[in-house]
C-alpha cells in the first residue's frame, strides 16, 4: 500500500496561518490503514489545530470529512456542496489524492498534511517498510523476489558492490544488503545462474509522468471515437 506520515505540526500550522476556515479531508484507504490520514487522524489533527490556533489568538474554524478514496473522481464529487464554505482544503491523503483533490477543485487552495513516503509492507502495527519504487519494469522474477531498485541503497542492477559488511549495507549496519539477500535466496533455490549474466543499462521509464491504460480500455475523450 501507499504509506505516508503526518507532516510536523509546525509545518502544518505555517501552511494554514492565513486561513480562517479550513476543511480537513481524510482518505479511507491506504493512509487510513497506515494510521496517517484516516477519519481518526483527521479528528486528532483538527483538535490539535483548534487548540493551537486559539492559543495563538488566531482561531480557526475546521470542518472534517473522510472520503472513501481521494484518488477516485466519484468520491471527490461528494465534496462539491461543501467546498465553497471553506477558504482552503487540508488533505490527509497521499500525494496522489492531494493532487486529485486540487485538480477537482482548482479554485481552492489545497494543502498537504502528510508526507508520502512510498509503497510499503505492513511489518507490524505502525511499522512499514518500503518495497517498491514502481519502476515499471519488474526484475523480481530473476532477483529471488527481492527488489534491488528499492532495497539496494545504490539501486544497482549488478550487485553486490564492494561495500557489503557482514551482510549489511555500507550505509548502515541495520540495513541488510539487498544483493547479499538476493544471492542467499537464489543460492538456496539453486537459481544462482539468474544473476551470472550482466544486466544491461536500464531504459528508465519513470523519468516522465506516466499514464496507464489497460488492454481493452480507452481514455474518456477517446470513447466512441
Amino acid at each position: 500500500m501507499i504509506v505516508a506520515k503526518r507532516k510536523p505540526f509546525d509545518e502544518i500550522m505555517e501552511l494554514l496561518q492565513d486561513y480562517k476556515k479550513v476543511l480537513t479531508v481524510g482518505c479511507g484507504t491506504c493512509v487510513a490503514v497506515c494510521l496517517a490520514g484516516g477519519e481518526k487522524e483527521v479528528a486528532v489533527l483538527n483538535s490539535e489545530l483548534d487548540m493551537a490556533r486559539k492559543l495563538a489568538d488566531n482561531p480557526i474554524e475546521l470542518g472534517s470529512t473522510t472520503l472513501e478514496r481521494q484518488c477516485d473522481r466519484e468520491y471527490l464529487d461528494e465534496l462539491a456542496s461543501k467546498v465553497d464554505e471553506y477558504d482552503a482544503l487540508l488533505s490527509m491523503a497521499c500525494g496522489v489524492g492531494i493532487q486529485f483533490l486540487a485538480e477537482r477543485y482548482p479554485e481552492k487552495p489545497v494543502l498537504p498534511a502528510v508526507d508520502t513516503s512510498g509503497l510499503a509492507v505492513n511489518q507490524s502495527v505502525g511499522f512499514y517498510e518500503e518495497r517498491c519504487r514502481s519502476c515499471q519494469q519488474c526484475v523480481l522474477g530473476w532477483t529471488g523476489g527481492i527488489c534491488p531498485v528499492t532495497m539496494c541503497a545504490k539501486g544497482l542492477y549488478n550487485g553486490p558492490c564492494g561495500g557489503t559488511n557482514l551482510g549489511s549495507c555500507e550505509i548502515d549496519p541495520e540495513q541488510p544488503c539487498a544483493w547479499y539477500m538476493i544471492h542467499e535466496r537464489l543460492a538456496k533455490q539453486g537459481r544462482i545462474d539468474n544473476i551470472k549474466n550482466i544486466c544491461s543499462a536500464v531504459g528508465w521509464k519513470d523519468t516522465v509522468p506516466r499514464t496507464l491504460i489497460q488492454p481493452g480500455y480507452k481514455k474518456p475523450e477517446e470513447e466512441g471515437a
Binding site: 541503497a153 545504490k154 539501486g155 544497482l156 542492477y157 549488478n158 550487485g159 558492490c161 564492494g162 561495500g163 555500507e170 550505509i171 548502515d172 550482466i198 544486466c199 544491461s200 543499462a201 536500464v202 528508465w204
Partner: peptide, 28 residues
C-alpha cells in the same frame, strides 16, 4: 567504479545518480 554512497561524505543528503552501475559502465 560504483562509488561510495553519499551518506559517507560531506554532502550526505545528495541524490545519488546511479543511472548505470559499474558493470554497465565497463560495458559502455
Amino acid at each position: 567504479l560504483s562509488g561510495d554512497h553519499a551518506k559517507f561524505g560531506d554532502h550526505p543528503d545528495a541524490k545519488g545518480v546511479f543511472d548505470i552501475d559499474s558493470m554497465q559502465l565497463i560495458a559502455m
